[in-house]
Design a protein around this nucleic acid. Structure first.
Lengths: 217, 217
DNA sequence: GTTTGTGAAGGATTTCACAGCA
DNA sequence: TGCTGTGAAATCCTTCACAAAC
């Protein structure tokens, strides 16, 4: 349908655009221009306009973009005009925190199942979700139309869990384990790894002294 | 000191390199070549060699890299030859999960303080950390040599907290709040936002049907 | 012979500047 | 006049291919 391949960098910015558009709409605004969006997004007007032209012509010259209309378009482009079902695998403290995180539901992601392999955890209920035995995963994934697997098991089990998910037909994985998952081409993986994020920041900090003096004294 | 500016993309890969080098060393290996590293990292031999040349000549032609030596070099380059102190701001369920996360300590990050503004939370102890009143942040940051702030407050308070941290002299922020923080040039920010990660994957999934049939039936 | 180190080519992404339209 | 839409230029990053070193 699209004339050309859309850069990944553009796709990764669309959810941010949608977020501020919905914020603006909630605040009662109706029209916005690329300069205002750039300020809110810490981006540039040109980049925002260029990004949007990969998908169509959404603005009016001399006026800007109608917020509700643009939000609807962006929402549809990135596939958020529907709800996506997800499963959490690994219900330790990290998995529990994920299941309890209130940010997924309003963003169109619904956690509908959770799995573990520990007998003490199986059968417990976390935020209304009944924890199942990992062996029930293949059937539940299909029956509950689960498209996304959220991997919160320890690193040494993550590759096996990913294999299970892929065999069950899942096409996207949100991976909290500190390993690089090996997956087939068609399965998307996003990694959440706060340690790596911290470690790439220290490169820039390495000249700071830990024994610096109190600034105001 | 360096001859040229090192690309951010290179810096963000160094922690991954370090991780597999330490793994290899723990497994008893002594030498590795760029092809083997590329396999482990899902990268390419050329990219690994190119990345390393931004910092020096670490290999022996015809042989490869000595693992312990290269690991030491990479560790020093990214500033992980020391421990970095961090503070968590916001001790709700997300903040508690962060404080309890066992992955920071072995990666050279030590959470040494936690802050909240709720009287019911102040004074509690989470994983050995005494939760302080947010008003004590400036003094504690300096006295405990804290370089990194981990922001786990709700989005509407995150910018204020970031301002406090910056005023206290912090230079890196790990931001779990779903907003783009505005910070001065010299303060590094890394965002952890699982919702954005999920939302950029659905673009690629949007043609999948939720009513697909069970593959094996 | 093997594998590194690296300039040069290629590709991706961002920025620029201005034509085009309301 | 004001702001979008968009080729072209510039920049950033990755891949390639081979000379150099062991």
């Amino acid at each position: 349908m699209e004339k050309q391949q859309v850069p990944e960098a553009v796709i990764s910015r669309l959810p941010l655009y949608l977020r501020v558009l919905e914020q603006l709409r909630n605040d009662g605004f109706e029209v916005v221009n690329s300069g205002q969006l750039a300020t809110l997004l810490h981006s540039s007007p040109g980049q925002i306009r260029k990004d949007l032209t990969y998908f169509g012509h959404f603005g009016k010259r001399g006026e800007g973009y109608r917020i509700a209309e643009l939000a609807d378009n962006v929402r549809q482009i990135i596939g958020l005009d529907r709800v996506w079902n997800a499963a959490v695998i690994g219900v330790g403290s990290l998995g529990s925190a994920v299941i309890n995180y209130p940010g997924f539901e309003p963003a169109k992601f619904r956690i509908v199942a959770a799995f573990d392999r520990e007998p003490e955890i199986i059968g417990t209920v976390v935020n209304g979700i009944h924890v199942q035995d990992i062996s029930e995963l293949p059937e539940t994934v299909v029956r509950s139309s689960i498209s996304i697997g959220i991997v919160t098991v320890p690193g040494e089990y993550a590759q096996n869990v990913a294999g299970l998910l892929i065999k069950a037909g899942i096409e996207a994985i949100l991976n909290y384990a500190p390993i690089q998952l090996r997956t087939p081409e068609h399965v998307k993986v996003a990694n959440i790894d706060p340690v790596l994020s911290l470690q790439s920041m220290t490169y820039h900090l390495k000249n700071t002294r830990s024994d610096r003096k109190i600034p105001s004294l």
